[in-house]
Design a protein around this nucleic acid. Structure first.
Lengths: 128, 128
DNA sequence: CTGTATCCTGGATGATACTG
DNA sequence: CAGTATCATCCAGGATACAG
């Protein structure tokens, strides 16, 4: 009985904690989910600042999509667009400090991605 | 001159490293990207094993989508479907060990998601 | 309860051409 | 170089109904 009550309490707390975690994950996916945002941030973190540089580095992204992703990233405080007047005008994108709060996420995902690639490769050669 | 050469070497190595990281991220996004997979794994990690339990916990997912996501997760070795014969038949899904390799990723993302939520909330109240 | 079958729509993306 | 405009396409996912 006491056991049953405790279990109910535990389950309730557990469910609430689960909701919190799921909500956090949902928030994260909303902000940085999708096919490109993290990859753009990685490329920029490696020193790519110009539109064309980023596009070359992030294989497969089109100008239209890169343009709209950069706008979203700017709106959400991850990057800033800098326009230098001159001949010709020079445009550079830079990471803002908020991008660096993603370092752990990026590190964890890339590490996992590398392990996963190894696993898939091993399976490929295993099955004939 | 030597400086220029060294820079070229550095840049080349740097670009290659960037490619590796981007490829790893791309692999990871391919396997666990999308709106639902990580959330399903979180819910299952909290003890939800039945189809309906998972659907209730992962707010907003439809039966059709959950069904197809579970199939993909099973194909990719993240979960296993267990069928217990009885009256009625009981079906449970369980995380396989490979799901636990995602722990760091999940932890990093949920932590970031919580911080992000706080930041957004702070901005909301700031701008009247 | 645990799904599957259909139908359908919006938004994301690709392709291509064009501009300052 | 750094994009924008336009059009066509595709598919994830929602809604609903149904089935074992």
């Amino acid at each position: 009985m006491a056991d049953t009550q405790e279990n109910q309490i535990d389950n309730k707390a557990f469910t609430e904690e689960c909701h919190k975690v799921l909500m956090a994950m949902s928030d994260a996916l909303y902000a940085i989910g999708g096919k490109w945002k993290l990859m753009i941030i990685i490329a920029m973190g490696r020193g790519n600042k110009r539109f064309t540089e980023i596009q070359r580095q992030v294989a497969g992204i089109s100008a239209r999509v890169l343009s709209s992703e950069l706008k979203e990233l700017e709106m959400n405080g991850f990057i800033i667009k800098k326009v230098e007047n001159g001949y010709p005008v020079t445009i550079e994108y830079e990471l803002l400090p908020y991008s660096y709060t993603l370092e752990e996420v990026v590190a964890a995902m890339t590490k996992w991605g590398m392990q996963h690639r190894e696993k898939v490769k091993a399976e490929m050669s295993a099955e004939k």
